[in-house]
Design a binder for these strands. Sequence first.
DNA 1: GCCAACGTTGGC
DNA 2: GCCAACGTTGGC
Length: 142
Amino acid sequence: MSYWLFKSEPDEFGWPHQVAKGDAGEEWTGVRNYQARNNMRAMRVGDRGFFYHSNIGKEIVGIVEVIRESAPDSTTDDPRWDCVTVRAVCALPKPVKLDQCKVQPGLGSMALVNNTRLSVQPVTEEEWKIVCEMGELDPSGL
DNA sequence: GCCAACGTTGGC
DNA sequence: GCCAACGTTGGC
């Protein structure tokens, strides 16, 4: 299983919206960046991701699961862009702030910290565990 | 609201 | 294929 991080602007589509979609999930539309798209194409059903709020909050707030692999993005006719579908798994008991990640040992090479503009990012297993612990979530329970 | 970083576009 | 101009993201 691989791990990822999805950025959203809570103004547009935040964690409450994702939760409201329930097990049916929601297509992660709107990505117009090759690197982010390629990350989505590498995702497999069952992969887990962090749900991050940019701009407002700047914190990781929840866990999502990939429930459909990359398929054409219905919000554009441009065939270059496609997207996965994700569903909310659970909230982090304690959201993890960007500031915390910046100073946390082991997270120095996290894309969230040093590639701020990438909206869909890979997360290593090590980073995944560290962030889960910071959020007071037991990663083995996922 | 500003601006740095970075990606994309298009003229040459 | 280079690079200037432009657009976007996202932290501050």
